[in-house]
């Protein structure tokens, strides 16, 4: 089982967003997708999922061409958390998490006992017990992030992609989210996570895919990917490793 983007190029209105980008996410690995603002991270994720048409190259989800999959087939392979967090209606936490099982629902959206069990499991793994009947609009940012994570876990798909799940979260909640994603990878899921926080990525990810200006710079374990010269070139910041910790020390 793997997610694979192969020599993918995306051009939108004459502007190249991705050029010849290849990377792979395998089962059991937590892969961080990193890059400065506008590097093409979200475009790469959407291209991988088949949501963004490619001008060249291929995207494979579990060896199947991504664009050939229906939304439902795709959801059964990979559970995807886009950046948008806002829910339109104040539905309950339980129902929001249950939406993660949408692809398993019958024609009228009915869910069975297996779905209910998956929802309960996800609720408890994201420490949402006791929150089940709360309205999602009444939650704090950290609680809402846990609801979305629980929704993704409830899907129990073989792969998981999260686009900036730690955006607007404090360090404690960011650690919780990454720890949960790491646990998913350890349990055999293929996990791709878009991150901005380099230290967080260095601490939790098994591999880093670094993008810059629409091109892949490197795919490697954190210590090899986020070297001081690469950090200087891509981000324009000073960084150094102290044992297994990445420390950033200001702009160059």
């Amino acid at each position: 089982m793997s997610l694979k983007l192969h020599e993918a190029s995306v051009t939108l209105q004459g502007a190249p967003l991705l050029r010849d980008v290849s990377f792979e996410v395998q089962s059991g690995k937590l892969v961080g997708l990193l890059g400065p603002n506008g590097a093409g991270k979200t475009t790469a994720v959407r291209a991988l999922l088949g949501l963004q048409p490619l001008n060249a190259g291929q995207a494979y989800l579990d060896a199947q061409p991504a664009h050939s999959l229906s939304a439902k087939q795709r959801a059964l392979i990979v559970s995807y958390l886009p950046q948008a967090r806002k829910l339109a209606w104040p539905i309950s936490v339980r129902e929001a998490v249950a939406l993660g099982r949408f692809a398993y629902g019958g024609p009228m959206g009915r869910l069975g006992p297996a779905d209910a069990a998956a929802v309960e499991d996800a609720l408890s793994r994201c420490s949402l017990k006791g929150f089940e009947d709360r309205a999602v609009t009444s939650l704090s940012g950290g609680e809402l992030a846990r609801v979305h994570l629980a929704r993704a876990l409830a899907a129990q798909a073989p792969a998981l992609i999260a686009d900036e799940p730690t955006a607007a979260l404090d360090p404690g909640h960011s650690y919780d989210v990454l720890a949960a994603l790491q646990a998913q990878a350890r349990a055999g899921q293929a996990v791709l996570v878009v991150l901005h926080d380099l230290a967080l990525a260095a601490r939790f990810c098994d591999e880093i895919v670094l993008l810059n200006q629409g091109q892949r710079v490197i795919q490697a374990p954190p210590q090899e990917a986020l070297t001081p010269p690469i950090l200087a070139e891509v981000y324009g910041v000073n960084g150094s490793w102290h044992r297994d910790q990445l420390i950033l020390s200001g702009r160059i």
Partner: peptide, 15 residues
Amino acid sequence: RALTLGEEAASAIGL
């Protein structure tokens, strides 16, 4: 019901 999450996320969960 799925669209409560917005269009992108609704599509992501299989709609």
